[in-house]
Simulated assay, not measured.
Amino acid sequence: MSHIANPDQPFEPSPEEMASALADLEHLANQHIAAAVPSQPVAGGETKRVRKLRAEVAEAHLLTDLQDDDAPLLLDTAKVRKRRKAAQEAARLHALAQDPDMRAWQAARMRRLLVTAALVSLTLALAWSTAGVQHFAADGAPPWSPAWVFAWLVEPFLSLALLVVVGARAYLGTRGQPLNDRKLVRNEGLFLGLTLAMNAWPYLPLVAADFSLSRLVLHILGPIVAVAVVTALPIILAAFASLDHRPSGTPTTPSYRANAATVDKLTAHARHLIGTGQLSVDSGADKFRRALGCGMDAARAVRDALRSNPA
């Protein structure tokens, strides 16, 4: 028979209900304690910490083995390859500079440049002296009078005659045929002497009413430069004509022969090692270096020589 509680009286659980509630609480407490205590490894199993430590130990062993290998140290870095490329380029340029054809081309180019500069300087110097010669030739004639106008033509026809002689000597000098005829040399001296005298005469100490040294130097500057150019140009061209375009200095062939002889000896020794089975033709340059006890460049040369001629 079910018992219906009176709503006006407080609820009181029965002893059976109290025992059931205590049992439920004890079960929940045991579950909480079991969850808080870490699980122990099963027989033959590993925890996460053990696996992590085992991986670190294995990695350390691998790193120890790899640290004994010097192969990474023998590789050429980008900077080394860049320097090696620059060195090879410099060596080729040096060898090209020693080539007789290249030396002849360089000499011809420089000679042409010097001749051009000398003729331009001579032309400017003669043009500078034109005003002085015109002042001398006009001899006080009124401006734009026939004498005054024709006085401007004195220096140009003297300069053109001088440039004909100088140009011919310069061209023949560049062709290895210097023109040193005494008559031509006298003509050059005559033209330059006339130009210098006409520029300097009105400003000499006993001729000028008011002598000025700076004015005298200024007017004879053009003829002096012309004399210097005409005198120096044949000497320079003669020196160019006598140039020897063969390589000069101590030849570098013996050193290259010595290097080639060293590589030949190392190659013969490498063939012996290959015959005894201590080395292989397909070995890398590093193995050749270790086996032969030589530098990396020599090892590469031996490797290439063996691969190109394995017999």
Score class of each variant (00 low, 15 high):
274 I>S: 02
228 A>E: 08
252 T>W: 11
224 I>Q: 05
221 L>V: 07
234 P>N: 03
242 S>L: 15
250 T>A: 14
234 P>H: 07
235 I>M: 12
244 D>A: 13
259 N>P: 06
248 S>C: 08
270 A>Y: 10
232 A>S: 09
238 A>Q: 14
255 S>M: 12
264 D>E: 12
252 T>N: 12
264 D>N: 09
217 V>T: 01
256 Y>G: 04
243 L>G: 03
269 H>E: 13
251 P>C: 04
262 T>F: 03
275 G>T: 03
254 P>H: 04
266 L>V: 01
244 D>E: 13
241 A>R: 09
223 P>S: 02
249 G>M: 04
239 A>P: 03
229 V>W: 00
245 H>P: 07
231 T>N: 13
225 V>Y: 04
219 H>I: 07
262 T>R: 14
273 L>I: 03
234 P>S: 05
224 I>G: 01
222 G>R: 00
264 D>I: 05
243 L>S: 05
247 P>W: 07
250 T>S: 12
259 N>F: 03
226 A>P: 09
255 S>G: 10
274 I>H: 09
220 I>N: 03
252 T>V: 11
218 L>F: 10
224 I>P: 00
245 H>Y: 07
221 L>H: 09
248 S>M: 01
218 L>W: 08
236 I>D: 04
229 V>S: 07
224 I>L: 15
245 H>A: 13
252 T>A: 15
278 Q>P: 00
266 L>Y: 07
252 T>L: 15
254 P>K: 09
257 R>W: 05
264 D>L: 12
239 A>D: 10
243 L>M: 13
232 A>P: 04
262 T>N: 08
227 V>Y: 06
268 A>W: 00
274 I>P: 07
218 L>R: 13
258 A>N: 02
233 L>C: 04
278 Q>M: 05
276 T>R: 11
223 P>V: 07
256 Y>L: 13
260 A>K: 11
222 G>L: 06
269 H>F: 00
238 A>M: 14
259 N>W: 02
245 H>T: 10
243 L>H: 01
240 F>A: 09
251 P>D: 11
252 T>G: 14
271 R>E: 09
220 I>R: 04
271 R>A: 10
247 P>S: 12
267 T>K: 04
247 P>M: 11
268 A>Q: 09
269 H>Y: 00
271 R>M: 05
223 P>K: 02
251 P>I: 01
260 A>M: 10
237 L>V: 05
250 T>F: 12
244 D>N: 15
264 D>S: 11
219 H>F: 07
219 H>R: 14
250 T>I: 13
224 I>S: 11
268 A>I: 06
264 D>A: 14
253 T>Y: 11
235 I>K: 15
275 G>M: 06
259 N>A: 13
250 T>P: 10
263 V>W: 02
228 A>R: 10
237 L>Y: 10
275 G>C: 02
240 F>P: 03
269 H>A: 12
248 S>H: 06
